[in-house]
Amino acid sequence: MPHSDIRYATGRCGLGALLVARSPEGLCAISLGDDAGALVVALCARHPHARPDTDLAALQRVAAFIDTPGEPLGLPLAPQGTPFQRRVWQALGEIAAGETLSYTDLAQRIGAPRAVRAVAGACAANPLAVVIPCHRVLRRDGKLAGYRWGEARKRQLLEREAQAGINP
């Protein structure tokens, strides 16, 4: 069931354009891209009644979280998804900064070792960029796989975590 009262703000972070959307329950979308307008169009396609937010505190906190690996977010999260997707997202949240897993390892962690493709699909459907750290999941051979917000951003996120000395 879609949230009916969604407010969003756009800005920039070290990874480019940033959109942060919140419902009364918490953050429901964090998107990255090259063009803030395109991020708004994509959000409004999923949530037609979303409207601009004049309170920029959440946007500023998310930007700081993205730009400073290890920074606590301290905001409630309210991602929408199926029970399976939420299970995957919960497991993603348990991957420490500086650590990576393969999709196979993640499927095993959630007790669904044969659901590797479904796990990858849940990662691709992640509505909260960086906060739900799907960028920490790699192919079994250790190479980068696709990333909803661009493979270059995934590489940059992993490099930032490594440079910040954040290790498991």
Rank of each mutant, 00 (worst) to 15 (best):
V40T: 09
L43A: 11
R46H: 13
H47Y: 15
P48A: 08
P48V: 02
R51L: 11
L56H: 15
L56N: 12
A57G: 11
A58H: 00
A58L: 01
L59H: 03
Q60S: 13
R61M: 09
A63M: 01
A63V: 00
A64C: 07
A64L: 09
F65D: 04
F65W: 08
I66F: 13
D67R: 04
D67I: 00
P69V: 06
G70P: 00
E71W: 09
P72F: 10
P72L: 10
G74Y: 11
G74V: 02
G74T: 01
L75N: 07
P76S: 07
L77V: 01
L77M: 09
A78Q: 04
A78R: 01
P79M: 04
P79Q: 05
P79F: 04
Q80H: 13
T82H: 09
P83S: 03
F84P: 13
R86Q: 15
R87V: 03
W89E: 01
W89P: 00
A91F: 03
A91Y: 03
L92A: 02
G93M: 11
E94L: 15
A96F: 04
A97E: 15
A97G: 11
G98V: 02
T100F: 06
S102Q: 01
S102E: 02
S102A: 01
T104M: 04
D105R: 12
D105M: 11
L106G: 12
Q108S: 14
Q108R: 15
R109A: 11
R109D: 06
I110T: 07
